[in-house]
Amino acid sequence: MSAPLAVVAVLVAAALFGTTGTAQALGPDQSTPLGVGAARLVLGGLGLLAILPLVGGRRAEAIRLWRTPAGATAGVCTALFQVFFFAAVHQTGVAVGTLTAIGSGPVLAGLLARFVLGERPGRSWLIATGLCLLGLTLLVAGGGDAQRVDVLGVALALLAGLAYAGYTVLAKRQLTDGHEPSTVIAAAFGLGGLLLVPLLLTQPLAWLTEPRGVGIAFHLGLVTTTLAYLFFIRGLAVLPAGPTATLMLAEPVVATTLGIVVLHERLPLISAAGVGLLLGGLLLQGLGTATGKRGPTTEARGLPTQPAVNTHPELEKACLCTSPTSPR
């Protein structure tokens, strides 16, 4: 896959992820944030494992990854992301919950990638991420009462962002070690789904007997998880972790738009300016990524080369550009 197509794949994944908060908000009254998050990961993980042979992966290898430190921790991160993210959205609203969780991802992923993978962020990544985070700050600052910003909700969202960043870096490490992208993603989400089965069984499940509840569960599981992460992993197999996490900030833009159009959440002028900065940062990152000079083959083998496909000329790194990251 070329760098421009990889950028498109990540943006498609981000757009699908952006529908999760609104889907939860439209769920039946009996549903709970933990129940919705658990159902999403259980269905999504099963879906990924079911289609794994059709997309070039192997179930036996995926299960073997569960017994490795990186594979097991990645699975735990996917489970924790669901729990923290849906609880944050319930606590503080779709817009702020999604923005905080996903907005913190690039910074946290960049820091983890620096210390775990040795990636050095380039200037364009820093500028693009800075624009996005400034836009995120304005978007949240303009929220007011309508977006119900509170300390607990923001804290839960930040924990979700940390889990997302952790999964991204660990998945990339597994790709660097030579594992097939689809196998890596199916292993993490399959294990995460298994870990959340006990939690799912403790939640009210009557909403899953209603047509609307079933539709939302399958949308969250098969569309925003199975399908979205197939796009995501293909893009991440080409792009480095930091820029990919920045591109994923398209998710809160979609989530905010849906919150306004579908849920009638208000967006003050200062928040609208924040959306503009977010889009500007995404455009800068997308252009910088798509015009990179290096293809993924050498990097995917873990050999030191020049900056990766979508990376920047100043981004020097070795064996770091096969990835499959976010949580979501």
Rank of each mutant, 00 (worst) to 15 (best):
S2Q: 09
A3E: 13
A9Q: 14
A13P: 02
A14C: 00
G21T: 04
G27K: 00
Q30L: 00
Q30D: 07
Q30G: 14
T32V: 10
V36D: 03
V36G: 01
A38S: 11
L41P: 05
L43Q: 04
G44K: 12
A50W: 08
A50S: 05
P53V: 15
V55E: 09
G56V: 08
G57F: 03
A60N: 15
A60F: 12
E61P: 08
A62R: 09
G71Q: 00
A72C: 15
A72L: 15
T73E: 09
V76T: 14
V76I: 14
L80H: 02
V83D: 01
F85H: 12
V89D: 04
G93V: 07
V96F: 10
I102A: 08
P106S: 12
G110L: 05
L112A: 13
R114D: 04
R120M: 11
S124M: 07
T129G: 09
C132E: 02
T137M: 11
L138K: 02
L138V: 10
L138F: 07
L139C: 01
V140M: 07
V140N: 06
G144T: 03
A146Y: 06
V149M: 11
D150T: 04
V151W: 06
A157L: 03
A163W: 13
A163Q: 15
A163Y: 13
Y164H: 08
A165C: 13
G166I: 09
Y167L: 13
V169L: 06
K172N: 14
R173C: 04
L175I: 09
T183I: 14
G193P: 02
L194C: 03
L196S: 01
T202F: 02
T202E: 07
T209I: 08
E210S: 09
P211W: 07
V214L: 14
G215S: 12
F218C: 14
L227M: 04
R234I: 11
L236K: 00
L239Q: 08
A241I: 02
L247T: 09
M248K: 11
V254L: 12
I260P: 07
H264I: 15
R266H: 14
S271W: 07
A273K: 08
G280I: 13
L283H: 14
L287Q: 15
G288C: 11
G288K: 06
T289M: 15
T289E: 10
K293N: 13
T305P: 04
N310T: 12
H312A: 10
E314S: 11
E316F: 11
L320R: 03
T322K: 08
T325H: 13
T325A: 14
